[in-house]
Structures are given as C-alpha cells and as structure tokens.
Amino acid sequence: MNSFSQNSISSYAELVAGHTTVSILILDANQRLCFLNPAAEILLGTSAQKAAGMRMSEIVDIRCDLAKGMQRISETNYPYTEREVELRLFSGESSVVDCSLIPLTEHDEDNHVLVEIQRVDEQLRLINEDRLINQTRASADLLRGLAHEIKNPLGGLRGAAQLLEGELEDESLREYTEVIIGEADRLQTLLDRMLGPSRPPRLEETNIHEVLERVRTLVTAEAGESSLQIKQDYDPSIPTIMADPDLLIQALLNIVKNAAQTLNNSGEIQLRTRILRQVTIGHKHHRLVCSLEVQDNGPGVSEELQKTIFLPMVTGRAEGTGLGLSIAQSIIHRQGGVIECNSRPGKTIFTLLIPLEE
C-alpha cells in the first residue's frame, strides 16, 4: 500500500480544490477569507488575492447565518449545513445554493472553518420545469374531458331552445329563448378558449425578433399615450427558428399584455433574447436553446401563486380570466419548449425556452 507524505497530501488537496466545481472557502474565526478556490472566485466574482482578509459580508449577501453556524460548530465540532439559501452579489446577480460549514480542528489552533457552497439552481430549475410540464399535460387532459362532458348537453340545450323558439307564437317570449341560445354560445366560446388553439403548429422558419416587434407594436398601440415603456435587448446572432409565428405571437401577446395590465400601463417592460447552450427541457437535452424573457418592474407574483400560475382559471388579478398564461404554456409546450416564472417585488421575469434544432 502506497504511503503519502504530508507535502504530497497538501499537493493533492490543492489539486482537488482547484478542479472541483464546488466553491470552497476558508474563513478564520472573525469570518475573514483566507482561501478561495477557482470555483469560488467565479461564484463570487472576485479573485482570491483581492478577497484575502475581507469578510464574507463585504463581498456577498448570503442568506445563511454564518455567525450562528460558526458558533454551533465551535461548540459541537460538527459540520453545519443550510440548504437552498439565496446568495446575492452586490452586482445584483443571485443564485440558490447549499452552504456547509466544516470545522478544521486538527492541527488548527485558530479555529478556521471550511465553507462549501454548491449551486442548486439547475436542479431546482429542472424539478420546477418537470412540474410545469406535468401540470400542462394534466390540465390539457382534464380540460379535454371536461369540454366533452359539457359540449354534448350544451348542444342539446341550444338545439331545444331553437326548436322552442320556432314554436312560439308570442314574440315577447322569444326574448327568453334568445337568452338561452346566447348563453349557450358564450359557454361554447369559453370552452374553446380554455382548450387553446385546436390546430397543430405549422412550423416554418421564423425570425423571433420580428415576432417580438409585432407583439411590442400591438401592446404599445393598446396602451395608447400611457407611461408604459417597452424596451428591447435583442441578441442579433440568434438564427431563425422552426416555429409557428402566429401561435408564438399569441403566446407572447398573452404574457406581455398580462405584464402591462399588472403595471396598469405605467411602468417598464423589457423584451430580451439570448442563446443558451446545453439546456435540458423536460427530459430532453438540447445543444442550443432560444431564451425569450419578458421582464417587468411591477409588484411581483407571490411564491404560492408562482406554483399554480400556469393552471387554467388561476389569476392574481380580480379582473383576470386566468386563461392567458395557461394557453401560452400550452402553445410553447407543443413546440417542444417551456415557460418559467421567476418573481420578486420589482422584478418579474417570464422566460420562454424554445429549442434551436435543425
């Protein structure tokens, strides 16, 4: 069995720390940084040389109680972990991480603590995405079954009202049959809207920026002379995508109009496009994905509502129907993509991910 010298072990430790994707930091008893590995430098957006001697709170806002954790491990000599905490850089970027504090007690009289920070954004995104896709499928199946059960008696009700109208001699009584026929037609229209577009997507080469500009023009015209601002941040390198432009306009129009109504036509909406690489949607991996973001600076969507916001008849506005986002999700899902929502007060982002496949 091979034996290693202390120097060899230290060399291997430095090699591992330099190549792992886990961010590794070492703090002294005063929470000052003594060491950062390359992954930690990338995560915190600073160099080890620049961060040396600084407190964690001077570099990053991490919603993990470091003082409490360090106190606990000094008393128990056991590691301390907090999961899914928010890490926010002062540049405004944020991520979700698992944070572990591990005591370095052996041969260490200064009570140094090793901090492991692992990003869990991607795992959480995939879990949330899977939930959204399953929600969309379950909702579509439920609505199809519900529509079938309602349409048959509704058609019979309308037909009977028409027959009755033909038998009535008193013109004043026909007012009631007209009400029945009109309400039956209204319910039929509502069912059709709940089911979304019935035709399959007609895929063709589509310039996504032309679609976005069409949506921007429509929403701007509807807002009139209000103080609503719609800004563009487009990536001109995005190629044409295989999509149904009419359905894409419908999906994006639902999202952008929803944002405008939330802002009461007084605020800012940003339309942003980017190319993302190596993205998994559902259980399928894509080399390139087109990301379309609709961001507004409104009051935000509550955490509870975010979990169900794409379900039919779910809305955060008293005057809303709860159909727009459900239909938009269904349209994008049928084109192999998904819509995600991330929100906090002052910043709500709906992200449409559409595969860029040949």
Rank of each mutant, 00 (worst) to 15 (best):
Thr220Glu: 11
Ile339Tyr: 09
Arg277Tyr: 10
Glu205Gly: 12
Asp233Glu: 10
Glu58Tyr: 07
Leu271Ser: 00
Asn7Pro: 03
Glu116His: 02
Gln335His: 09
Leu247Lys: 08
Ala48Asn: 10
Val215Asp: 02
Leu253Pro: 05
Val85Thr: 06
Leu271Tyr: 00
Thr177Tyr: 03
Ile102Val: 14
Ser198Lys: 09
Leu323Pro: 03
Arg193Leu: 09
Ile339Gln: 07
Asp130Gln: 14
Gln118Val: 01
Leu247Gly: 04
Gln6Ala: 14
Ile241Glu: 03
Asp65Tyr: 11
Pro197Ser: 06
Gly156Val: 05
Asn297Lys: 02
Glu86Asn: 11
Cys99Asp: 03
Val256Tyr: 04
Leu271Ala: 00
Gln229Ala: 13
Gln71Asn: 15
Asn264Tyr: 02
Asn264Met: 00
Asn254Tyr: 15
Ser3Val: 13
Lys151Phe: 12
Ile354Cys: 08
Gln270Cys: 03
Leu190Gly: 04
Ser47Asp: 05
Leu132His: 04
Ser198His: 07
Asn7Val: 11
Gln49Asp: 14
Leu44Gln: 01
Leu25Lys: 01
Leu288Arg: 08
Glu84Ile: 15
Arg186Lys: 03
Ile59Phe: 03
Leu352Thr: 07
Ile255Pro: 01
Ile208Gly: 05
Tyr12Asn: 14
Glu129Cys: 15
Leu305Gln: 12
Ser94Trp: 06
Ala184Asp: 04
Gly156Pro: 00
Ile309Ser: 12
Ser5Phe: 15
Glu210Lys: 09
Asn30Asp: 05
Ala184Arg: 02
Asp121Val: 07
Phe90Asp: 06
Glu178Gln: 06
Ala260Ile: 05
Asn258Leu: 12
Gly145Gln: 14
Leu15Lys: 07
Leu124Trp: 15
Arg272Gln: 06
Met194Lys: 08
Leu173Phe: 02
Leu253Asn: 13
Ala140Gly: 02
Arg131Thr: 10
Asp235Pro: 00
Gln329Lys: 09
Gln329Asp: 13
Gly166Ala: 08
Ile150His: 04
His286Ala: 12
Leu173Ile: 02
Leu36Met: 08
Leu248Trp: 04
Thr105Arg: 07
Pro355Ile: 12
Ile349Gly: 01
Phe4Tyr: 08
Arg344Gly: 06
Gly53Met: 03
Val115Lys: 00
Glu358Lys: 08
Gln306Asn: 14
Glu167Met: 13
Ala51Met: 01
Ala243Gly: 09
Gln135Glu: 11
Asp108Phe: 02
Thr308Phe: 10
Gln123Ile: 15
Ala328His: 10
Ala318Arg: 05
Val215Phe: 10
Glu340Ile: 14
Cys341Ser: 10
Ile238Glu: 00
Pro299Gln: 02
Arg32Tyr: 04
Leu44Ala: 01
Gly322Trp: 08
His148Thr: 09
Leu173Cys: 01
Ser291Ala: 15
Ala147Pro: 08
Gln135Gly: 04
Arg63Cys: 15
Arg287Cys: 12
Glu357Trp: 01
Arg125Glu: 15
Asp185Tyr: 00
Arg199Glu: 09
Leu190Gln: 08
Ala223Gln: 13
Gln306Phe: 14
